[in-house]
Design a protein around this nucleic acid. Structure first.
Lengths: 343, 343
DNA sequence: TTGTACGCGTTATCAG
DNA sequence: CTGATAACGCGTACAA
């Protein structure tokens, strides 16, 4: 029962006393084939339960109609939404998706990329891991003539297609919003500065302070607070300062913001009256905490669609010179209760 | 620059004045090949930046080392966790994952399955859409000699490998728990009864009532309340009853439970004192609502690993007769504040 | 319109 | 241990 032989174009050619090539043509809806025989072929193909062997077809045609996706974690809201967006757009074009997760590990990321290269995928879409500083494996993709698209967490140095969020601007707007609300001492929880997205968010924070004539206080900037636990610790530390902050921008994620909120509540610090909080990503739960959390929506699903469309657009581009193209999506500040100091 | 030619075993054979088959052997670490030449081959392979064409290899070997996964939605916590689990287990064995989403649409599900059959995947893992009542496309998978594994939402009638949750038992335990807490009139929000999982959950509810000697009240059972909005509506309706329920089991999801909680709060009904609430799935947010929501953990990541291991185990099975195998995972009741009537 | 013949890149099976 | 050759299933230029 296992691995029964599947019907091929030979089988149906034999049965019809035809040449396999005719069958192939009919199956591909070629114009130069008699309507009657075409119908006959299609009919018996259905009878024999024929399905094209895409492997053979792709081998012959020299492409795989497959796109490889590498993300740190599949089961993270932002990434699974991006993937859903990519899938939605590529599916209509008959493309398949091969999904890999790096688990934030450099070594596994390299492995994933190599597997995808072996698979002869037509395009690799990647958001790099937090460990990734070396880009040989990405260069390798290009060297193999495979289209490379980076998104969100990108290696700036590499000239490739990119789809990013305007992290700098959105952070700027978030912090400006908090300042306008009347918060005077806004602290920053930073992510690993190896990743460009976290550098950009920090820059936005700094620019907001500067443009509003507010001094930068190093003690209010905490490095590597990019998980809920780390952020909780950082918050305890910040709130114990002689001059504690009156607002915290958890630039790494909403989970960080949640850590802040929980510690503040535990320490009897009133949000938003005594402490403003802003997160990043617009996770579902930010709407239902009490108070609800101000955050930044990244349009993750749309981002996925953009990635896919960028690829298709690039494919149609007949110019020999490949011009690096970068699409920046402007995230949107979602103001909620956690930053409503003034009512 | 586009689609530059990639080096093949011919290229490296030519350069070394060897036969392609020798190169192939060396690359596959065959025992019968001179150590010296093997080293030489491996070295020049690296020099020429060679990577095996998995397409050709798989075509020759007659399998794809690829597993297709079809789920209603990729970006839904439960499913993305299952996928992450599958990926985690299959990756180590050198398998790739092709992911498709049916978007809860029967037609798209059929399309997905057909694509995967075309791709000659070795195995298809599926959780059916809410629309799916006809199973021809699943039978088609089997007819093509492809291993089929159903999980979570399965077609009971089909004899295939299955990995499910024991929905009946967990629902029984959840409702029993509520009754023990002192709730007398427990309402049920049902999902579409087309899906076996929702039928099972209803059965568990009914059995819990029966075994505790509590009468079944049809007015307290609301059909098709399986989104947050539908559940909110249902809750408004229930709480307006002359004899309203004092507890609601949102058997479809935690989102439904959230809808219940929001309406209760808006109507000034105190949770858990005047209304107990239990959800299903253990979404992250259930921990942080106020009050936190009692729910049922499905071990989704583990479920994915189980699916993968079931496949590998089946592959090793040399018996000609394929014995249908069903693995049932026992979910775990997580009791939280929303059902603490007695303190 | 149809048939012939070959190649896509590997691997398996023979000989040698 | 290595070389020659066929085959996996399909698509296509060329000839008929």
């Amino acid at each position: 029962m296992k691995s029964k032989k599947r019907t091929t174009i030979y089988d149906i050619a034999e049965k019809l006393n035809l040449n396999p090539s005719s069958v192939s043509r009919a199956l591909n809806n070629s114009s130069s084939v008699n309507d009657a025989t075409k119908k006959l072929i299609l009919k018996t193909a259905k009878e024999l339960n024929y399905t094209r062997n895409t492997l053979a077809s792709n081998l012959r045609k020299g492409h795989s109609k497959t796109i490889g996706v590498v993300v740190p974690r599949i089961n993270q809201n932002f990434f699974s939404n991006v993937i859903a967006g990519i899938e939605d757009a590529t599916y209509k074009q008959g493309y398949n998706l091969i999904i890999c997760q790096s688990n934030e590990l450099y070594d596994k990321e390299v492995q994933c990329v190599n597997t995808l290269i072996n698979q002869h995928v037509d395009c690799i879409v990647i958001s790099i891991s937090v460990e990734t500083i070396d880009h040989k494996h990405l260069q390798n993709i290009i060297d193999h003539g495979i289209q490379l698209i980076q998104f969100d967490r990108v290696a700036d140095e590499l000239e490739t297609l990119k789809v990013t969020n305007d992290n700098e601007q959105s952070s700027f707007e978030a912090v400006s919003h908090m300042i306008k609300q009347g918060y005077k001492r806004v602290a920053l929880l930073e992510g690993p500065q190896k990743l460009n997205i976290f550098r950009q968010r920090k820059n936005g924070y700094l620019r907001a302070l500067e443009e509003n004539g507010i001094p930068v206080i190093p003690a209010l900037m905490i490095e590597n607070a990019w998980t809920k636990e780390l952020s909780a610790n950082a918050t305890r530390q910040l709130l114990s300062l002689p001059q504690p902050p009156d607002a915290i921008f958890a630039s790494t994620s909403d989970f960080s913001a949640l850590g802040v909120l929980e510690v503040a509540t535990a320490m009897n610090v009133k949000v938003p009256e005594e402490l403003g909080i802003c997160g990043y990503s617009n996770e579902d739960f930010t709407e239902i905490t009490s108070p609800s959390i101000t955050t930044i929506d990244q349009f993750s699903f749309y981002m996925g669609k953009t990635v896919a469309n960028l690829y298709f657009q690039e494919m149609e581009n007949t110019d020999t010179m490949v011009v690096p193209k970068i699409i920046s999506i402007k995230p949107k500040l979602i103001t909620r209760s956690s930053t409503q100091k003034t009512i």
